[in-house]
């Protein structure tokens, strides 16, 4: 067990290094002189030169890379080229809302998807099965921006139940919940299809196995057979899928945040890229990658915890 964790941690090191290198190269190939961007258009050449020296841009690339690694190790990602705030400060402020949005999306859509998938598997070939499968293909094909716009139009404007601009407060306050509902609902919708499909095929697979036949043979009720012997084992691949889908969800979050003006990482990233704020762009992209690696790591560990076959 511990072996698996240690092994996976060691395997993450090159990936992590790759991400850091990627972030560094990103800044190297960016068009234009970062010092010029920081100094602003009206700065004199002396000022630009001073800033270049201060940022270490006059040194050889390898020295710059070492300095960059040193700063990263100390958690220093530089300052925003636009707001001049520390990048870590901007990231810290945006991380909470993004986590809130993603958890808000997953907390309702994963159970719904699992329930739909199990129902479809149990009623295989019936009208219900076909309807659920058709719905999940449609769900996978729907552009997330379209869902969000329809939700705004429907539950924000025509029936003004929920608010749809920004984050009025944390989720546990009334205003905060009303503001979180629509983006979390829209984002969750894109996850239902994949989860339902995966659960269905996984449950079908498990129901064919010997231990399920044994459970039936010893006279357990069908509900118990499906829930305790079928679904429990079928959920292992579903967990992996949900982990893999976190990246997909993160992509969806970028869109949802932009549309709902949600003050999270996705909106920060898009805004930074569109306004050439390279330090913030670099910071958000690296944080995304780091988050994704961490989630994959957790999924792998969970997988080995849940599946005794992997444990050895």
């Amino acid at each position: 067990m511990l072996n698996v964790i240690v092994q996976r941690l060691i395997l993450s090191i090159p990936v992590l290094f790759g991400v850091m290198l990627f972030g560094f190269l990103l800044m190297q190939v960016v068009p234009g002189d970062p010092a010029l961007v920081v100094a602003g258009p009206s700065a004199t050449p002396d000022v630009v030169a001073a800033i270049r020296e201060e940022m270490g841009l006059d040194k050889p690339v390898l020295v710059q890379f070492w300095g960059y690694l040193e700063r990263m190790a100390q958690g220093d990602l530089g300052r925003s080229m636009i707001s001049n705030k520390a990048v870590t400060e901007e990231l810290g402020a945006a991380l909470g809302p993004t986590l809130e949005l993603m958890i808000g999306a997953m907390i309702w859509s994963v159970p719904v998807g699992i329930a739909m998938g199990t129902l479809a598997a149990v009623l295989r070939g019936s009208l219900v099965d076909r309807a659920i499968m058709a719905l999940s293909v449609a769900g996978v094909s729907l552009p997330i921006f379209f869902i969000s716009l329809v939700m705004i139009q429907w539950l924000g404007v025509t029936y003004p139940i929920f608010t749809f601009i920004g984050r009025p407060g944390p989720w546990y306050t009334a205003e905060g919940f009303m503001g979180l509902f629509l983006p979390a609902f829209s984002l969750g919708l894109i996850l239902i299809g994949p989860v339902a499909r995966m659960t269905r095929s996984s449950v079908l697979e498990v129901l064919k196995l010997d231990h399920v036949r044994t459970a039936r043979a010893k006279g357990l009720s069908e509900t118990r057979v499906i829930l305790a012997h079928g679904l429990r084992n079928a959920l292992i691949p579903v967990i992996t899928l949900v982990g893999l889908q976190v990246g997909y969800l993160l992509g969806g979050a970028v869109v949802t945040e932009t549309i709902f003006s949600w003050p999270g990482l996705g909106r920060l990233a898009v805004g930074a890229i569109l306004s050439s704020d390279f330090t913030v762009a670099q910071g958000t992209i690296m944080l995304f990658a780091l988050g994704f690696i961490t989630v994959n790591l957790i999924v792998d560990v969970l997988y080995s915890l849940l599946d005794p076959r992997v444990r050895k």
Binding site: L26, G247, A272, F278, F292
Partner: peptide, 21 residues
């Protein structure tokens, strides 16, 4: 496997940051 750990939108964001829209 390493490449797989970069979601498409993330790659898109990074490349656009470098190359412009």
């Amino acid at each position: 496997d390493v490449l797989l750990s970069f979601p498409a939108i993330l790659l898109g964001l990074a490349l656009v940051a470098v190359m412009g829209q």
